[in-house]
Computed example of a mutant assay.
Amino acid sequence: MSRWSLYTWKRDGRSLRRALPTLTVLAALLTTSAGVAAGAAEAVERDVLGSGGLTQIELSSFEGEESVRPLTTSALQDAENAPGVRQVVADYSSGLYAEEDGTYDLTSHTLTPGDDLPVTKGKVPAELGRSEVVLPAVAQGTDFAPLLGRTVAFGYTKATGAASGTTAVIKLKIVALYDPTWQADGPGVAYLSEDTAALLAAARAGQEPEVFRDKEGAQSATVVVDHQKQVAAATKTLQDDGFSASPVSDRVRNLPGLFGAADLAMRVGVLILALVAIGLGVVRAADSTRARIGQFAILRILGSGRPELRRILLGEAVLSGGVAGVVGVAVGTGVSLALVSPLSDVLGLPIKLTDALPGPGWVAAALLLPALGLAVGTLLGSREVLRRDPYLTARAHS
């Protein structure tokens, strides 16, 4: 780079710094896409796949779909007997509400192996007991922190007729609280053992738990296999047996357009950034050289050769691309961090600020491509103008 590059870049409005705004925007977009994709991938890997999602299969039961096998007791036993299956946990949904203090009304679900709750207080045992419950830290204006570790009376609905019901009471110990922003099953969910969740669902239907589980069945179930390599075979076996079965890892990978769109945006962004930088280099270098042809002609007459003039232009290109890369990475990283909260809501998973930092490879691309592309374009765009005879040029501009 010529020693004159910094001077001409700063002082001459016709220098290559005119390419800086466009390159900055492109570098920022590339960095933002990289940060968003990194944050989403890290959250999914940590909170879904890292918690055993790679070895889990989800069974669903859709009301009214005759082709889908209901998740009754016998059906779940058949699922448990499939090759490679280690455990089947059924999810029954009902509700718990305030019996004494408070006005909350919480949806209840079974705590399945796929629920990796972000616990804020207490500890979730390896297997939740029948008289234990895990609650959100705050729900519907009620702070459950003072009740942690205590046995609390909850109300639940017990049907007594076709259109009537009474309130029954169940006492449960609150063993842990989780971050209420984690809403994989919706807001304000109380997590119970499978037997307790089935008890509440059966009561709401006006049936005994055993009858309810035999006839109505669960709304979904999580199947755990011994190793991830057995997931495909177990899924096919379950589907052949009439179950609606899908690997949890497939569901995660197919999150609505998020990963595919972000990954595509990054790859296309690299290509666009490189091509635009080269194109800008060609156009801006040619325009800048023509606008300063008189100055360059005088420098040629005073002894500066074409290589020296190219070094001046290359210096301006590197400075413009370097500043664009640095500013673009800073702005793109800031935008990515600002999107952490909305992205967490979309995924239903907690994303840390450090998760949303773009990877070093993408940062390097955003930093280097503007300068490299602009430099290549400058070499191409300045050739024709710099070939002109300096004496004829100086005379024409005198």
Rank of each mutant, 00 (worst) to 15 (best):
L172D: 00
A232T: 14
E384F: 09
G322R: 06
A28L: 05
V124D: 07
P136K: 02
A317M: 07
G122L: 10
P180T: 06
L374D: 10
G257L: 09
S15A: 10
L20M: 13
L23Q: 03
L275D: 01
V68G: 02
F212N: 09
G129Q: 13
D143I: 05
Y156M: 09
L374Q: 14
G348I: 11
E210G: 02
D250V: 14
L271S: 05
L255I: 14
A277R: 04
G52K: 05
D101F: 02
V326F: 09
D195F: 08
V225N: 05
A291K: 13
S220R: 13
L71M: 10
G50Y: 11
Y191P: 04
V175S: 04
A126G: 05
A168G: 12
T222P: 10
L302Q: 14
L29Y: 00
S33P: 01
F259L: 15
A37M: 06
Y104T: 10
G186D: 02
L273T: 05
A205Y: 07
E80D: 05
A262Q: 06
T181P: 00
P136L: 07
L106V: 08
A356C: 02
K10P: 00
D78W: 02
T160A: 03
A163M: 07
R290M: 06
A82W: 01
Q56V: 04
M266T: 08
V152A: 00
S33M: 15
A285E: 06
A277E: 10
A139H: 03
Q219W: 06
S398R: 14
S336D: 07
A153C: 02
G322L: 13
S93L: 05
T354C: 00
T55L: 04
S61Q: 15
G161Q: 04
I351L: 11
V363Q: 08
Y97H: 11
G206K: 03
A38G: 11
P113M: 05
T110N: 10
T235W: 02
Q239S: 12
A153F: 04
I174R: 02
